[in-house]
Design a protein around this nucleic acid. Structure first.
Length: 187
DNA sequence: CGTAAGATGAAG
DNA sequence: TTCATCTTACGG
């Protein structure tokens, strides 16, 4: 997928509208990516800002490498590595609009409120049963995968804002979401 | 080594 | 607004 080799900000924007799909023994779940954030090499909020380490190594992988990390001791977030190998940048998937497997998502999330299924990075990971074992896999493989939107998303449907939940680099406009979408995360 | 802060979520 | 919960990165 050529898209992922582009610069990280472009990838973050163009990933909007793609469908993320995960199938396991419980069934299939999928959702449209409606919110993303970019993390760049020269960005203090980026896990790969200082140097490569055991934890952030997937960010330095080939474009499409999956980076799953634990945050606040109890939640996990998914990222897709962008750009060329050895460049520590990635896009955080922050929210999905649920499509397939909504009943399964409800069970996993312990709620019947569809709006609360995937409206945050930790929520969608739980709803889609994404796990730490997927760290360093590739989005180009057959397990967790993405497919392009049927109709390309027009530029004027994409809103750009500052990122959520960070203190460093808080003024950088690296968060993107689909205009008017009901499934994006809250501050 | 010790420890503070962290790309969050749910409840009060 | 608070707390749950724990790994990582950095300072001593």
């Amino acid at each position: 997928m050529d898209l992922l080799n582009l610069d990280t900000l472009s990838v973050a924007k163009q990933l909007l509208g793609y469908t993320l799909i995960h199938e396991n023994e419980e069934g299939i779940t999928s959702g449209i990516i409606v919110e993303t954030e970019a993390y760049l090499q020269d960005d203090p909020a980026c896990h790969a800002y200082r140097k490569k380490s055991e934890r952030n190594a997937p960010m330095f992988g080939e474009a499409g490498t999956i980076y799953v990390y634990q945050i606040y001791g109890m939640h996990f977030c998914v990222n897709i590595s962008t750009n060329q190998k050895d460049i520590g940048e990635a896009v955080l998937i922050r929210a999905l609009e649920p499509v397939d497997g909504i009943e399964l998502m409800k069970e996993r999330r312990k709620t019947d409120v569809v709006k609360n299924l995937c409206s945050g990075p930790g929520k969608l990971v739980q709803a889609m049963a994404i796990h730490k074992g997927m760290n360093n896999w590739s989005i180009l493989g057959n397990d967790l995968k993405i497919i392009p939107p049927k109709i390309e998303i027009p530029e004027n449907e994409i809103i750009t804002t500052t990122r959520i939940g960070i203190t460093q680099g808080a003024d950088l406009p690296y968060r993107f979401y689909l205009k008017g979408n009901k499934y994006i995360s809250k501050r």
